[in-house]
Design a protein around this nucleic acid. Structure first.
Lengths: 287, 287
DNA sequence: TACAATAGATAGGCACAGCCTATGGCAGAA
DNA sequence: TTCTGCCATAGGCTGTGCCTATCTATTGTA
C-alpha cells in the first residue's frame, strides 16, 4: 500500500469518477486506474463498483474511506506542525551552566533573551563541569556555559569572553584600599575556596600555584555567595571572577594584577548535535 | 513522503542504529540511509543526529516520531479491519421485496436466515417493483425479491421458483368446493384486485386477458390481506398467488387450471454491483 | 601511536514500478 | 443506428529505490 494510492482512492470517492480524479491528481486516467486496482488486490476486495457511467463505493470502500482520509490528514498536519516548529523559535531549550556563571553574567543575559524570544521555553541546569559534559553527551542539556579548557574532543566550544580574577577581602583588610594587588601579597592570609569539582576552584588554585602561593584553606562551600558572606565576616580572603564583583556585598574587591589570573567562559555543544532554532538563537545571543 | 520512509524512520528510532534498522526492514544500510536523507530534506531538517557510534533523535525527530507511528498503526489496523470484514458475514444488508411476497414466502425464509447468520443486520423494504428497481440502481437496496419479468437490462435476475395462481372465493360461492377451476368460470363474478402499480395485479390481469375475461373490478387495495377479508365478507372474488393461500382465512382457495396462470419470483441485483458477504449468503440462502 | 573494527555516507549500476500514449470495450444519449 | 463518455488494457519509457563496493570517521585495543 502506498500513499499515492490512498490519495487516488480518496479523489475517486470525492469526484465519483476515475477520469476527474486523475485530473485532480495530475496523472493520467490509466495510471490512476492501475493504482486503484493494485490497492484493491492488496486489500482483497473491490473498493468501487464500476456501473457503466458512474462509479460508487462498495461496502469495503465505504469502510476504508475514513481510514484513508485520516491517514492522509494526519500526515499533512504532521508536516505542517514540523514546518511550524522549524520556523519559529519556540520549543524547549535546556541550558547548563557552572555555578560561578549562572547567577551572575548568565542571569542577566537570559533575562534579555527571554524578553526577545518569549516563546522559547528555557530551563537552566546549574551543575559542575563534568556533570554538564555528561549531560551534553546524553542530550539532556542542549548548550553548556562553562570555563575553558574542557577535556573531550567531542564538544565544540565557542569562547564568549575572558575576565580577570579579583580578591575578595574583609573591609578591614590592610590591602582593601589598593586598586590592585599581587597574589603573593596574600601569602599569610587564610583562604576560602569553592568545593572540589568546581572549575573555578581549579582556576583559583592554578593562579596561586603560578604565583608560588600555597593557600591555607579554612572554608569550602558550593557557592560563591556563601564565601563572600564569610569573607565579610572576617574569616579570610577569597578569589572571585570579575562577574561576581558586587559592591553591595560586605567586602572589598581588589583586582589581581598577575597576568595569568583570569578565566575564559565558553558555550559548549555536543559536536554533530542539531540545535533547534531556540538553542541557535540563544547561542548567538550569548556571543 | 512515502510510507517505507516512515517505516525506516520508525525502525531507526527503535533500534538507535541505521544498520540494525536496515536489517529489520530487510534492506541494505545505504538504501535506508538514502531514504532517511530524502525524508529529512523533504521535512526541511535533520531527524537524527549522527554522533559517531550512536544515532539519536533530534527535537524534530522526537516531534515527528509519534505522528509517523500513528500513521503506520492506523494503516495496519485499517487493513486488519477490512480483512476481518471480508471474512465474516457481518454488516448491513438491505433487502427489498414486493408486497405480495414479503409477508408470505420471504418472511419464512428470512427467519431461518437470521438464525443461521445472526451477525448480518437485515433491513427489509416492502415496495412495488418500480420503486425497488430505482432503489437497486441508487444502491439503497442490495437485493430485491420480485416477480418476473422486469424491464431494464442493468439488472441480473436469479429466478427462484414459479407458483400457480389461486382463486379466492367466499365460502358460499358455488365453485368453492371444486378442486380446480378455469378463469372463464368466474366471468360473472365481481373482482377485487390490488391497486395499480402492483405487479401481481398485472399478473392477474394478464391471466384474465388470456382467458378472454374482462373482470369487473369493485374494490382495490394495497394489500392482499385486505382483499381476502373483503372476499370473506362476500364482496366478490380475487386472485392470489399460491404462497398467500391460508386456510385460516374466512374464504376458500381454488387452484386455477389455466396453464398460464402463474408467476415466477426472482432475486434481482444491480449488474456490476459488488455484494458484501452477507448479501451473497442471503442470495444463496434464498435459491 | 598505530591498527583493527564498526557504523554511516557516497558512488555507480541495475531492475522494476509507476507513468505516459494509444487503443479497446461497453453503456448511455442523440 | 451512431456518437460520446468512461474505464480497462497494452506497450514502451523514465525515474527511483535498491544493490554492491568503497570511503570516511569514530571507537576500542595493542
Amino acid at each position: 500500500m502506498e500513499l499515492h494510492q490512498l490519495r487516488y482512492f480518496s479523489a475517486v470517492a470525492d469526484t465519483g469518477s476515475f477520469s476527474r480524479a486523475a485530473e485532480k491528481c495530475h496523472v493520467s486516467q490509466p495510471s490512476l486506474s492501475q493504482q486503484i486496482q493494485k490497492l484493491e488486490s492488496e486489500l482483497g476486495g473491490r473498493l468501487f463498483d464500476r456501473l457503466g457511467r458512474s462509479v460508487r463505493l462498495t461496502d469495503l470502500g465505504e469502510a476504508f474511506l475514513p481510514r484513508a482520509r485520516s491517514v492522509l490528514h494526519e500526515l499533512s498536519s504532521a508536516k505542517d506542525e514540523l514546518s511550524e516548529r522549524l520556523q519559529s523559535e519556540s520549543g524547549p531549550v535546556v541550558i547548563g551552566a557552572i555555578p560561578t556563571v549562572a547567577p551572575y553574567w548568565l542571569a542577566q543575559r537570559l533575562a534579555t533573551f527571554s524578553r526577545k524570544f518569549p516563546k522559547v521555553h528555557l530551563t537552566i541546569a546549574e551543575e559542575i563541569t563534568p556533570v554538564l559534559l555528561d549531560r551534553l553527551r546524553a542530550g539532556s542539556v542542549d548548550l553548556a556555559v562553562l570555563a575553558l579548557p574542557i577535556r573531550g574532543h567531542e564538544f565544540d566550544a565557542h569562547p564568549l569572553f575572558t575576565e580577570r580574577l579579583y580578591a575578595a577581602l574583609p573591609k578591614t583588610h590592610k590591602l582593601a584600599r589598593r586598586p590592585a594587588l599581587q597574589l603573593a601579597d596574600l601569602r599569610r592570609d587564610p583562604f576560602l575556596f569553592l568545593r572540589d569539582g568546581h572549575c573555578f576552584r581549579d582556576s583559583a588554585v592554578a593562579a596561586c600555584n603560578r604565583a608560588r602561593l600555597d593557600p591555607r584553606v579554612v572554608f569550602e562551600s558550593g557557592h560563591l555567595s556563601s564565601l563572600l558572606a564569610m569573607v565579610g565576616a572576617g574569616m579570610g580572603v577569597s578569589l572571585v571572577p570579575e562577574m561576581a564583583v558586587d559592591k553591595s556585598k560586605p567586602c572589598r574587591f581588589v583586582r589581581i594584577a598577575d597576568p595569568q589570573a583570569q578565566r575564559t567562559i565558553a558555550a559548549a555543544v555536543l559536536r554533530g548535535r542539531t540545535l533547534n532554532r531556540g538553542s541557535r538563537a540563544l547561542l548567538s545571543h550569548l556571543r
